[in-house]
Design a protein around this nucleic acid. Sequence first.
DNA 1: ACCTGAACACCGTTCAAGT
DNA 2: ACCTGAACACCGTTCAAGT
Lengths: 247, 247
Amino acid sequence: MSTSISNSGAGSPAPSRRNRSTRDRPAKTPLSEDAVINAALAITRRDGLEAVTMRRVATELDTGAASLYVYVANRDELLHAMLDRVLATVPLATPAPERWREQIYELMVAARRALEAHPGMAAVLLGEPPITERTMDGAENLLALLRAGGVMPQDAALACDTLMLIMSASATEADVRRTAGFAGFSIDAQHDEIASHMRDRFTALPNARYPLLNEHADEMVAGDVEERFRFAIETFLDGIAARSRRR
Amino acid sequence: MSTSISNSGAGSPAPSRRNRSTRDRPAKTPLSEDAVINAALAITRRDGLEAVTMRRVATELDTGAASLYVYVANRDELLHAMLDRVLATVPLATPAPERWREQIYELMVAARRALEAHPGMAAVLLGEPPITERTMDGAENLLALLRAGGVMPQDAALACDTLMLIMSASATEADVRRTAGFAGFSIDAQHDEIASHMRDRFTALPNARYPLLNEHADEMVAGDVEERFRFAIETFLDGIAARSRRR
DNA sequence: ACCTGAACACCGTTCAAGT
DNA sequence: ACCTGAACACCGTTCAAGT
C-alpha cells in the first residue's frame, strides 16, 4: 500500500543512441547524468560525501573531471541531484486515517534511513529551500497524513516543517557520529562505544557544576538513535494532538 | 605587503634601527589563539563560513597561513573553537520553576540568535558530539529547567537532545536561506521575497498531484522564522507536558 | 557532437630555513 | 623561540584543441 516517489516522466537513462560497434568502445558505459549521479552515490556510500570530488567521480567513470561538466553544471548541482535520487527511494504512504501517527512515523523513519545510507546527504537537504519536486512530494504526503489525523491546516503546515527539520537534523547528527573518530566499528558497536564514552565523561564531571548531567549520566546516554528519534517524533505528535484537542 | 617590518627603511638612507620601538613595529597585535579566533569570527560575520580559509584569516592578521598553526591545530579545530566562543555568549537561565517553559524557549532563542549571527556555525554544532564544555553547560541548564517543570529524568534527558536538535537545525536552515540566492536583501525583505516566491510555486502546482500544497499555499508560507521556531519548541513542550501528565 | 589535457586560481598543511 | 616562504598534494572549473 505505498506508492513510490520516483518516475518524473522522461527521466529514464536510455539515450537510445544506436552504437553498434562495441569493438571500438570497449565495455565502457557511455556517460550520462545518471551514470555520474550513480558513481557519486557509490562513492558516498563507500567513503562519505567529502570523498565526492569531481576528479574522484571522473576517475570512477574512467574519464577526466572536465567531462562531467557536460552532464552536471557544477559540484553543487550534482549534490542536489544525488539528494533527489536518494529521496526518490522513500515510499510514500496512502493515508489510512486511523493509522495517521504510525504512518507519519514510518515515513520519517524511511526518509531518515535513506539519508543515513548516504552520509552527508542530510546536510544537503538541510541546506536547500524546500521547493524541489521530491521535497514537495514529501510535504504533500505529510500534509495528507496530518489532515487525515484531523490536524487543522495551519497546524499541519507548521508541523510539516518541524517534522522535516527533526528528521534531517537527526540524520545529519547520526551520520556525523558515524564518521567522527569511530570509523571501523560496526554501527551497533559504534553506538555502544560512543554511549559508554559519553557516560564516562558525564560520570567524571564535577558534581558541583554539573549536578544533573553527573547524576543522570545513564539517562543521558540511554537509547539508540532509533529510540531517540522515536521519542522526538512521538512527543512532537503528542504536542500536535494536544493542540488540536484544545481547539 | 608594504607593511612588512623588514623593508621599513628600504626607501630612505640609513635609518638607525637599534630602536625596536612601536615606530618600527606598527600597531600589530601579536598573534594568539584568541586573535586567530576573533579574526575568523569577524570574517564569518562579514562573508560567511566558507570565506574562512586559513589563508584569508592569516591575511586578516597580516601574516601567512603557516603562522596560524602555532595557535590552532587545523581548520577543523579552529571551527570548533569559534563555535565554543559563540555559544559562550548565550546567557544561561537560573531556573524559576513557574516560568520553566518560557525559560527554555528563551534559552533556545538566545542560542539560535547567536548561531545565526555567525552563518555556518550551526552546521558545525550539528556535526559535533555534544561533549564540549559549552554544550554541556547548555545541556545542564536545559535539564535543570525541565526538572524544574516536573519532567521525569529520562524524559528530560531525551527532551534535552531533541530541543538542541530543533534549535541547531532551525539555525542551519535559517542561515542557509539567507545566503542561498537572496543575498543583498535585508533579513525581512528576504523573508518576504522567499515567502512570496514559495507561495507562487505552491499556487502554480498542479492540483491533481498536489491538492493540499496547492490549496494551503498561504498556510505553508505563513509566519516568519521566529514564529515557526516558536511553534516547533512550544508544540514539542506541549508533548512533553502531555507525557508527564500521563504518568 | 562529444571528449579531454592542460591550465588557472584557489585550498589545507608541512617544513626547512630564516630572524 | 617564534615566524614564514616555498613547496606539496590536492580542489572546482574553464577552454582551446583534439576526435
